[in-house]
Computed example of a mutant assay.
Amino acid sequence: MRILITGAAGGVGTLLRPRLAKEGRVLRLLDVTPLEAGPGEEAVTASITDEEAMAAAMDGVDAVLHLGGHSLERPWAQILDVNVNGTYVVLEAARRAGVRHVVLASSNHAVGFAPRGEGEAPDYLFPRPDTFYGVSKVTKEALGSLYHDRYGLAVTCLRIGSCFERPRDVRMLSTWLSPDDCARLAEAALAADGFHVVWGVSANTRRWWSLEEGRAIGYEPKDDAEVFADTLVAEHGEPDLGDLPHSVVGGAFCGPHYDVDNLTAEG
């Protein structure tokens, strides 16, 4: 089996690379940053916006894990070119190559302005993006839906929370996706049929995002950010759930720092 991983040099791609390595599996790693291929790997230096390069990269591929694109907020033109058009290029190349399974890295920022309710934030929560970056994730999900309904691709969209080796602040006690759980989620998504939108989050004690749809496709998280709680709470204090980082899905991305005028001023 050969899996194409776009954005393989990024944070999530770097964490997943050793965890997705398996006997009989080839990981084709694609990024604009040159990578050195190890055993069971192939490296491709290309942009996801390059139609010819993406068509070539799909040769012999069984499934795609699309992580490529800007991972933080950028001016609209950059988001449009790389995140939105790049996703179209990837999906169209996959369709033309006959690839059946595509996993799209969405984000909690696709629904960032959704407020914290009394229960869990449900699967398939209606889009309320908090940034242009968030809009690109909504568009990624929409393109995935189109390519599933019109062309029959099996597409799973992962609304990833905070994927790091360990949670970095008290907000991440709720939103953390451990690298090992990220790999478990990716494996389940790469095998899932149909179209799905699932939360990318671990089995955190303080989690308030649903795991129902993830479990429906075979994802069973095993990690809990609470093992880091004592250290983080001692440093930052217990979170006030009424404060912005905790009261909406997107946290600080919903704040004024991400207003377009501020973004333009920062270049």
Rank of each mutant, 00 (worst) to 15 (best):
G119T: 00
E120S: 01
E120M: 08
E120T: 03
P122F: 01
D123H: 03
D123Q: 02
D123C: 11
F126Q: 13
F126D: 12
P127H: 10
R128W: 05
R128K: 14
P129D: 09
P129R: 07
P129I: 09
P129F: 07
D130P: 03
D130N: 13
D130L: 07
T131D: 02
T131F: 01
F132P: 05
Y133Q: 14
G134F: 08
G134I: 11
G134P: 09
V135R: 04
V135I: 15
V135L: 15
V135N: 04
S136K: 11
S136M: 13
V138C: 14
T139G: 12
T139A: 15
T139N: 13
K140T: 15
E141A: 15
E141D: 15
A142V: 09
L143H: 05
L143C: 08
L143P: 08
L143S: 05
G144I: 13
G144H: 04
G144A: 14
G144T: 11
S145D: 11
S145V: 03
Y147I: 08
Y147A: 04
H148C: 01
H148D: 02
D149M: 05
R150D: 05
G152S: 01
G152I: 02
G152N: 01
V155A: 03
V155G: 03
C157R: 06
C157I: 10
C157P: 10
C157T: 13
C157N: 15
L158D: 11
L158T: 12
R159F: 14
I160H: 08
I160K: 11
I160R: 10
I160N: 10
G161R: 07
G161N: 07
G161Q: 10
S162R: 06
C163Y: 07
C163N: 14
E165N: 12
R166H: 05
R166N: 02
R166K: 13
P167V: 11
P167H: 02
P167Q: 07
R168P: 00
R168D: 04
D169H: 04
D169C: 10
D169S: 09
V170Y: 08
V170M: 07
R171T: 08
L173R: 09
S174A: 15
T175L: 11
T175I: 01
T175N: 03
W176K: 03
W176D: 04
L177S: 09
L177T: 12
P179A: 12
P179H: 08
P179K: 11
P179N: 10
P179G: 08
D181G: 04
D181K: 00
C182N: 11
C182S: 15
C182F: 12
A183L: 10
A183H: 06
A186R: 04
A186V: 14
E187H: 02
A188R: 02
A188Y: 01
A188I: 02
A189D: 11
L190K: 01
L190R: 05
L190S: 04
A191V: 00
A191T: 01
